[in-house]
Design a protein around this nucleic acid. Structure first.
Length: 417
RNA sequence: GGGGAGGUUCCCGAGUGGCCAAAGGGGGCAGACUGUAAAUCUGUUGGCGUUGCCUUCGAAGGUUCGAAUCCUUCUCUCCCCA
């Protein structure tokens, strides 16, 4: 039987730990409460946020108790770690709202259900103890444990010193450490996990607890997940790969994973799916074109976790249909993004450019014009390269038209009669 | 509070009176090559009614036949001094 840490290790989740052996020993003696911070700065998480929560999942599976800590108080301040801009400050109401939306998304990976009993995940908000903090007391009890000299040696602050760092941002580390201390006191939380950019803050928390409570707690960080093509994880030209299907369709979500670089497949399978490690190793042996099978599995599993089995099935079918040799042959196209238009619109015909702009394929008519000029516009597998072309009902097949921009972007236009 | 340097298109960054919808790079999009990969090469990259017109160079005014470029005021950022 693998311990939780071994599982994390073999799946590539561990970057640094304050004391791996001691932590392993502690976790061997029984369930351990641990926490991960969540930013409530948006109403949806995106895949770049998910690493800690997948780790949380494995920890929970192994019997430990997760706490998702919403940074309601801290996000009203801004964290300087690695960021060049000050964070936008939010109102308590916005944060509350975001936190609820986020919890729903987390529930796809972590179990918040009451029926789970002791091991269930809980969500707390640090606004509860930061909101009414007394400045003098805080300085006296917490502030005295921090050395400015030491803090200035932290890489994250060093960088910011060059660009400018406001005093409240500088305090972030104290607040995060105080969070850990509070969770330790109130919940007996012994471990904080987070991205590697949080290392400094996490260690600061461990030290604070050691000084004030004379107890050893632990910190563990995850590697910053990058894509081997150098792009940021979870970012696309269209913006972040959100988990919210309203913001990022399940089909596009599937495609995002389907299109990861070869070099990333195994790593991502380990971190972002729950497939057994043996199966992943097998998939890792695939070479060249074969590796596409592994990518498809990655995309399917990930979509299944986040959007559910039905959406995953639709997405994989749609993708297969769209990319099969026969082009957009009549297979299941359910999962493709689509719009509906009135049949009457086609009575007089509609300009190709306008048609493409109606879909999400082109943003402006100039954009559409370029697409057509460069030969990237396709309707029902027929290239359209005439700018003024009028599209009418003759193009409709089985009540719809399948538009394509370039090789990969599809869009269904469903004609309502 | 005093002094200095700046704010240019998605980003970085050139441009100091007309040749500027604005160099170059990055990124994006499209094409070729492929495996729905990477790398590479080519084209393209403000909008529209496209041999033209409209909006854009922090904001508002002004000078000028003509301004991203000059002047005034405002505003924001950074640096130095207090």
């Amino acid at each position: 039987m693998n311990t939780a840490l071994e599982i994390l290790q073999e799946r590539g989740f561990i970057k640094q730990c304050t004391d791996l052996e001691a932590l392993d020993a502690l976790m061997g003696t029984g369930p351990v409460k641990f926490y991960v911070g969540v930013d409530p700065t948006g109403k949806s998480l995106h895949v770049g946020h998910m690493v800690p929560f997948f780790a949380m999942h494995h920890m929970q599976e192994a019997g430990h108790s997760p706490i998702a800590l919403v940074g309601g108080g801290t996000s009203m301040i801004g964290d300087p770690s690695g960021k060049s801009e000050m964070r936008q400050m939010l109102t308590i109401e916005q944060i509350q709202e975001n936190a609820q939306a986020i919890q729903k998304q987390l529930a796809r990976v972590v179990d918040f259900d009451e029926s789970r009993g002791a091991g269930k995940a809980v969500m707390l908000n640090n606004y509860d103890w930061l909101g009414g903090l007394n400045y003098i007391e805080f300085l006296r009890d917490i502030g005295k444990h921090f050395s400015v000299n030491r803090m200035l040696t932290f890489e994250s602050y060093r960088q910011r010193l060059e660009r400018g760092l406001s005093f409240i941002e500088f305090n972030y580390q104290l607040l995060q450490s105080f969070d850990f201390l509070t969770l330790f006191r109130n919940e007996d939380c012994r471990l904080q996990m987070g991205g590697d950019d949080q290392w400094g803050n996490i260690v600061a928390g461990v030290e604070l607890i050691r000084r004030t409570e004379r107890k050893e707690c632990f910190g563990l960080t995850f590697p910053l997940v990058t894509r081997s093509d150098g792009k940021k994880m979870g970012k696309t030209e269209k913006g972040a790969v959100f988990l919210d299907p309203e913001l990022f369709s399940p089909y596009d979500f599937f495609q995002y994973w389907r299109n990861v670089a070869d070099a990333d497949v195994v790593r991502f399978l380990k971190m972002f799916t729950f497939l057994p490690i043996e199966q992943i190793d097998e998939l890792g042996k695939l070479k060249d074109a074969e590796i596409n099978r592994a990518k498809e599995i990655l995309a399917y599993e990930q979509t299944k976790i986040i959007h559910g089995v039905e959406e995953a099935d639709k997405a994989i079918e749609a993708a297969r249909a769209a990319f099969s040799v026969s082009g957009s042959a009549a297979v299941d196209k359910e999962g493709l993004p689509s719009i509906e238009i009135e049949a009457s619109l086609l009575d007089e015909g509609i300009n190709v450019l306008d048609l493409f702009v109606m879909t999400d394929l082109c943003k402006t008519k100039s954009d559409a014009r370029r697409l057509v000029q460069q030969g990237g516009a396709v309707i029902n597998d027929q290239k359209v390269d005439t700018i003024g072309l009028i599209i009418d009902a003759a193009r409709v097949v089985d009540g719809e038209m399948m538009l394509r921009a370039g090789k990969k972007r599809y869009f269904r236009v469903i004609v309502r009669s």
